[in-house]
Amino acid sequence: MAKETTMIERFKNLDRRIIFTLVAIAVIIPLLRPIGLKTDVTKEVKDVYDRIEKLQAGERVLLSFEYDPASKPEIHPMAIAITHHLLNKGVKIAVVALWPMGSEMADQVFELMKADSRFGHKFEDDGTTWVNLGYKAGGPTVIKLAGSKFQEAFPGSKSGVPFADIKILRGVKSISDFKMILSFSAGDPGLKQWVQIANAQYGVDVAGGVTAVSAPEFYPYYNSNQMFGILGGLKAAAEYEALIGVPGKATSGMDAQSVVHLVIIGFILFANAVYFIERKQMKGVE
């Protein structure tokens, strides 16, 4: 009895650093070596994938980046996955940004497309495959102007190439000349304005990716067919990575969350077991 009691006391006074260490290991290992736990794909994510699958090589798509380093961990993985999918389809991509750091986020995505062996894309930054038109202040005003006079809204590339010399923009007069608009948005201005203006006023198909906390406000637009799909948070990004068959940071992030949850549940069950064993022993002493 004394030995059992001593063991129970040890468990009750377990050094919290052991718990912190186990949680740290549960986070680090899946981040370094993704497990690839099965992820059920939601309809709104699959709708985005299916619509992109229907695109034909040479068609134009407009990507809008409205996030910064603060929201990068959650939105960047979905931007990477969707951009990879678009490049695989052979479409032409024009990038704009309604947030100051948005164009930098876009540059990072396209640099990764060429540098990372998982993607293996080979293209020149000469406006034949994609072009970064840079950041424009004004939010809704910029979108409205682009709706009728795209060249006035975005007169040239971020690197200084005039609109007329950008090959993939030849023939573009308004946002209606793009097959779809995809916005990666962490707030306003962002996806909401693209839906309210580009879709509602100009009839352009719109979808996008947002943070998990803001996703619920976009479901009314999705359910009323004003958006053809939506990615909400890291889980949705992991779903899209599963669809394209390229596990990335979203997959490893969700793996880490799942493993940590299992570890925490294990600790809870263990603590309850210790409690009931101690309680039984105390009754035996009485």
Rank of each mutant, 00 (worst) to 15 (best):
K173A: 14
S174F: 08
S174V: 12
I175L: 07
S176L: 11
S176V: 12
F178H: 01
F178C: 01
M180T: 08
M180F: 00
M180P: 11
I181D: 01
L182V: 08
L182W: 03
S183V: 07
F184G: 03
A186D: 04
A186E: 03
G187M: 02
G187A: 11
D188M: 14
D188W: 11
G190I: 00
L191K: 05
L191V: 03
K192C: 11
Q193G: 07
Q193D: 13
Q193Y: 13
Q193M: 14
W194M: 07
I197A: 03
A198V: 11
A198Q: 01
N199R: 11
Y202D: 06
Y202R: 15
G203Q: 15
G203P: 04
V204A: 04
V204F: 04
V206R: 00
G209D: 09
G209R: 08
G209N: 03
V210A: 05
V210K: 00
V213M: 06
V213G: 14
S214K: 07
A215R: 12
A215G: 09
A215Q: 14
P216L: 10
E217S: 09
F218T: 14
F218H: 04
Y219D: 14
Y219M: 12
P220V: 06
Y221V: 00
Y222T: 03
N223Y: 07
N223K: 12
N225R: 13
N225V: 03
Q226R: 13
Q226D: 08
M227E: 06
M227N: 01
G229H: 02
G229F: 09
I230D: 05
L231S: 05
L231Q: 13
G233E: 02
G233Y: 10
L234V: 10
L234F: 00
A236S: 13
A236G: 15
A238I: 08
A238L: 09
E239D: 04
A242T: 11
A242E: 12
A242N: 07
L243T: 00
L243F: 06
G245H: 13
V246E: 06
V246D: 08
P247M: 10
G248Y: 05
G248M: 00
A250I: 05
T251G: 00
M254L: 09
M254V: 09
M254I: 10
M254H: 06
D255N: 09
D255K: 09
A256E: 05
V259C: 08
V260G: 00
H261A: 15
L262F: 14
V263S: 04
V263M: 07
V263Q: 10
G266F: 02
G266D: 03
F267W: 11
I268R: 01
I268T: 01
I268C: 06
I268P: 01
L269Y: 05
F270E: 08
F270G: 06
A271M: 09
N272R: 13
A273Y: 08
A273L: 12
V274F: 10
Y275T: 11
F276T: 10
F276Q: 10
R279S: 11
R279Y: 04
K280L: 15
K280H: 13
K280V: 12
